[in-house]
Computed example of a mutant assay.
Amino acid sequence: MKNLLRLLKEGSRSALWASIMNAVIAVIKAITFFITGNVAMFAEMMHSIGDTANQFFVYVGSALSKKAPTDRFPGGFARLINLVLLGAVLIVGILAYETVKEGINHILAPPESGEWFYLNISVLGIAAILEAYVLFKAMKEITEDIGDNIKGFKIVTKSFKYIDRAKPATKLVFLEDLVATGGAIIAMLSVILGTFTPLIAAEGYASVIIGLMLFFVVGRVFLDNAAGVLGVADEDMERKIGEVVYDHQHVRDIQELIVFKEGAELHVELKIELDPNMSVAEADDIRDDIEARILQVKDVTDVIIEFDEDDETQTWNNPVSQE
């Protein structure tokens, strides 16, 4: 039990916050539905309930992925988060389908608009604010992972720029709450249009748009995590670590360098060339020094280093210094 609690403390904070906030939003929408009987609000309630369960599973998965290797699973559990997210996108896909279907039903048979207008607008406004808060938390977590001390509005711009470098759980929360925040705003506009203009089917069109946005999230997250399950190479980190290794005074060349992701962890395999006249003891000291330098890079968990003698043919082109 103590080990489980320790692992849960290491779970994705953004996923936990998103789950809590969506639970609050689901309760608010449920109360509104029981008061108004509005079918669209029922769909929104189910959407929030689904998001709550989805992001809670992501939080648990991100925590369990940090479990230490065992005799049965010597490779560790880092890729568990990718498997959990592949399951999570199935929930999002079902939500997307139901959202589009409900929107088409509203377009074909628009319900009466205007009743309980202020209550519906208030609930959607509160939902938009809470979703935006969770979205900002995810943005902040993305910028913190980069390692820069980013503050203010730059957190928003930098989070969009570095979304591909975010941890899998954080990326899912970011994308889901980006859609949720935008969807709440679109839903508010549709309620206004449906009440005060002849476009009484506006809520249906809004529902279809939100559903299509959710399908985009499904596709993006599925492709990212399918690659993560297989162990995808990280070219940005290869350039960064290559720079660290090549700067070592005793490294003549880098023959091979592979950095691949397992969940949020990075694994490095390296083959370098040294002076052929160097002793085994000297080479061993160099190995320890290079390994220590690489392990200082964020999220790197293990390093495998091989040596070869200098063949006087340059292989590594040091791409970072050329940028």
Rank of each mutant, 00 (worst) to 15 (best):
Y246N: 04
I254Q: 00
P198W: 07
N54K: 11
G183N: 09
E282P: 01
T70R: 05
A201C: 11
L295Q: 03
A169R: 08
F222W: 06
V84L: 01
V84C: 09
F260N: 02
L212Y: 04
V58T: 12
F196W: 11
A227F: 14
D145F: 05
R13S: 07
R220T: 14
G183P: 06
L83K: 00
V245P: 00
N225V: 06
I290T: 02
G147H: 09
A226W: 14
I20S: 01
L193M: 10
M45N: 00
K151V: 14
K261C: 06
V92D: 02
L5I: 06
P319W: 05
V221I: 13
A63M: 12
E291R: 11
G204P: 02
S14G: 01
V217C: 12
M41W: 04
G263F: 09
P319N: 00
R72C: 05
L212P: 00
G228E: 05
M21T: 09
N54C: 07
G263H: 12
L130N: 08
A53V: 13
K2F: 06
A180S: 12
I28R: 04
A264R: 08
L199Y: 11
R220S: 15
W17V: 13
N120G: 15
M139I: 11
G87W: 07
T143N: 11
R220N: 09
D148R: 07
S48L: 09
I107V: 15
G263E: 07
E141L: 07
F196Q: 00
Y97K: 09
I163H: 10
P110C: 01
E309S: 10
R6W: 09
F136N: 03
S190K: 00
W17F: 13
I294P: 02
M278F: 02
T170F: 03
D148N: 08
V303H: 07
A292K: 08
K2E: 06
Q296C: 12
I210L: 15
E44F: 12
R220F: 14
Y162Q: 10
I155R: 09
M237Y: 01
V218K: 01
F174I: 04
D310P: 08
F307P: 01
A127R: 00
Q322E: 13
T315L: 11
V191M: 13
A40G: 04
E176S: 14
D310S: 02
F174M: 09
L90E: 03
V156I: 15
I28A: 12
D289V: 01
G114D: 03
A180F: 07
K167L: 14
K2R: 03
K261V: 11
A109Y: 00
Y97H: 13
M41T: 15
S113Q: 06
K29R: 03
I150P: 04
V280P: 10
G194L: 13
Q296H: 06
Y118H: 15
A127S: 11
H248K: 05
V100E: 02
L124D: 00
L257W: 07
A233M: 13
Q55I: 04
P69V: 05
N318H: 10
V84Y: 11
A292V: 05
V58Q: 05
I35D: 11
I185C: 04
M237R: 02
I192E: 12
M139G: 08
V156S: 08
L175W: 06
R220E: 10
K140P: 00
I107A: 03
A30Y: 06
V89D: 02
S48F: 07
M213A: 12
N225K: 11
L178G: 15
G125Y: 13
V217H: 02
